[in-house]
Design a protein around this nucleic acid. Structure first.
Lengths: 408, 408
DNA sequence: GTGACTTTGTACGTACGACGAAGAAATACA
DNA sequence: TGTATTTCTTCGTCGTACGTACAAAGTCAC
């Protein structure tokens, strides 16, 4: 039992590690900052700051980037974070595709590889495909294995905190005998972190998207399924069994259609991509025999097509019911909508906000922003890489050692 | 922005403080443990453990309590926590009453004082009443001010994390000009911690009730209003604006009665004490002109009275709808029901569990226990005191200094 | 310009706390 | 009874942060 207490003991080395990580984080966040400024903010002595910075510089994580403006005396030397010192691999396992990206330490994508893949039913083929794509990414940028911090993996299943490599046998039974984490770890010989896709979308938004600087964020992924992820106190919240955020099977309409989960009127039966496109087809009349794609639906709504608008409105309406409950319960600082359909922006946000306003307490509404994602379709894969970055920034020893000459 | 990172720098003193708190926590949890065992578990060197334990002993927080069983050599000296070294004040501000208790460092109540009080409308009188009751408690046990760690206060309003002493002007407008924390702090000259009543009920359950040893717990307070509190990673979760846990105004029946909040069929309009007792009166027929009390309702249900049973069943049914959503979203390890009516136990739990099972995903159900509180009506006040205890166990310097002779 | 003052960053000695080796006391076990 | 084991303390060592002193590089008033 942690009880929120610090768990680890500290000796001299641990003291250095802790202060060192603190400085590394500060330099990462500020992008450029002087030693003197660090000393003022951290209340560490100037000599200590100098020593630690020298240390970080020696390991290639930070470097001097010229002089800053004077505050009435000698001009400070600005220290900057080396975004390119290491790379990170981000993997997204979707329902029907695999995406692998290689990022720097600032979440910027250097290479990307995509492949169609029946993830649910073919674990072996999927993992093999990941292996291929990873190699392609590393070779394309000529990145040596030594300079990769690790690999983050987003999976379309809840993951149990105590066994993050094993997927839920109820959601993806075919993966029952595979441990994603173990498999990839031994395949690549680097640290592997696994989490649910919506959770990583949330992390992505918290680091690079609408939630920058915040600590309590909710992300909702609108796709075939509806999932959500929570960032609480800056960390992904998984719940005790790893299934936190399963918003898709909240019942919002007791007289709605029957869902596979047994309920009537689950969110997913009303606003999952399937039902949504089906409704669009019906509304568009007999002229279209096939359902539109999400892209077409978005474009239709943008160009003012009534049927498309109506579908988006109902999406906002139903989603608002669930979001209102979520605001009352969790009171996040911000709710971010992701998934392809969120690109309609205000056309979705307006009816959504109206629906929420009717149902949430004004107190929990007041401070909550509801926005759409601006990160695009790579949000999840970037979030996977971010999981590794987050871990490494907290624990410097995750960065592989690679000494830099003193006269750099 | 914390980003989950350790915020504070560490020097030699900080190192000692951290290790010292770690040991104090371990001794508190284990109740009795030898130095050697502490060294093994913490991986601190035996000499360091001895030094810190001597330190803690000297400040009166721990003491030797005889020899333990040998493990094949010299018998260890067991160290125990001094539950009576300090006292803690816990205050509960209800809607119509004030309760003050004095506890030891193990959550045991030493004295209790209760008074009817119109809390909502009379802040000045309420605070004055608290002052009186606190003095009575301290004098009854002849507890000197020096040995009180601090005071925890449970208030019937959300509290904003950035201003924990100020109550919500929407819920209790009369308190607009009062800062509970400041007022009590300057009145008593001791640390004061304030939080919402349901949050503190949750903390209480996590420390002393059904959630012992767990980290992720949800508490639901069934009373005039319906509130809930979340313990996440061992800490109270307040949300970004302090309103997390406002479960009372979740809409569970779109065709239900109109609520003051503007919605129809809020939980509170269906299973708040008022509507519940009213329904009981109706079902009991014409013979009873007045509504029963909660106590009578509970007794009626226990003795098999059909009307009472029916009311409890419907409580379980409606509550289950909200709890199912909560399980899907938060996936807590345990849900604890509090409030007077929860004393019916299984009579409520059975229909509740059935209702939940119909609505929650089996994955989030599987590992979640749903139970009723066993802490009784002092749970909230004890939780308030626990908030102080939790803070002090993490930061030893909150314990006032009081030296103990070396030859104790 | 010149001089006084500020700010930045480094060098060196000090202090504090954890560690490790050594040892004494107490106990189990053969 | 002797040997090995365990517990706990003592004392010297070591690593890290701190503070002071100092050199370098500015600003600002005149």
């Amino acid at each position: 039992m942690r009880m929120g207490t610090v768990e680890t003991t500290v000796d001299a080395a641990g003291m250095r590690a802790q202060n060192s990580s603190l400085l590394l984080n500060m330099i990462w966040r500020e992008r450029q900052i002087s030693r003197a400024e660090i000393a003022r903010r951290t209340e560490l002595s100037p000599s200590t700051v100098s020593a630690i910075v020298a240390d970080l510089e020696h390991s290639g994580l930070v470097r001097s980037i010229g002089a800053g403006v004077s505050r009435g005396g000698r001009r400070p030397t600005l220290i900057g974070f080396c975004d390119d010192a290491y790379s990170i691999l981000g993997v997204e396992l979707g329902a029907t595709h695999v995406t692998v990206i290689l990022t720097d330490l600032r979440g910027r994508v250097r290479v990307q590889r995509h492949a169609a893949q029946a993830v649910r039913d073919d674990p072996k083929g999927t993992l093999q495909k990941v292996k291929e794509l990873v190699h392609e990414c590393l070779e394309a940028e000529r990145v040596p294995r030594r300079s990769v911090v690790g690999m983050g993996v987003a999976v379309p299943s809840p993951v149990h905190p105590s066994a993050p490599g094993r997927l839920s046998p109820l959601i993806v039974p075919a993966w029952k005998d595979y441990d994603v984490q173990d498999w990839l770890k031994s395949a690549f010989g680097m640290p592997v972190f696994v989490d649910n896709d919506a959770n990583l979308g949330a992390l992505s938004e918290c680091y690079w998207g609408a939630g920058i600087g915040g600590e309590d964020l909710t992300y909702i992924k609108l796709a075939t399924g509806i999932g959500s992820g929570f960032i609480i106190h800056g960390d992904v919240y998984r719940g005790s069994g790893g299934t936190a955020g399963e918003i898709g099977h909240i019942a919002v309409d007791p007289s709605g259609p029957q869902c596979v989960c047994g309920l009537r009127g689950c969110l997913v039966t009303l606003i999952g991509t399937g039902p949504l496109l089906e409704r669009a087809r019906e509304l568009m009349g007999t002229k279209s025999r096939r359902s539109p794609t999400v892209k077409e639906l978005v474009e239709g709504a943008r160009s003012g097509e009534p049927a498309a608008r109506q579908v988006i409105d109902s999406l906002g309406h139903y989603l608002g019911i669930a979001v209102a409950g979520l605001l009352n319960l969790l009171n996040p600082a911000i709710v971010v909508l992701g998934g392809e359909i969120s690109s309609v922006g205000d056309l979705l946000l307006d009816p959504l906000r109206a629906s929420v306003r009717k149902r949430a307490l004004s107190t929990s509404m007041a401070e909550t922003r509801i926005v759409t994602s601006a990160l695009g379709d790579r949000a999840i894969a970037v979030g996977a890489a971010t999981l590794v970055l987050q871990a490494a920034l907290r624990n410097r020893s995750l960065f592989p050692i690679q000494h830099v000459g003193k006269t750099a």
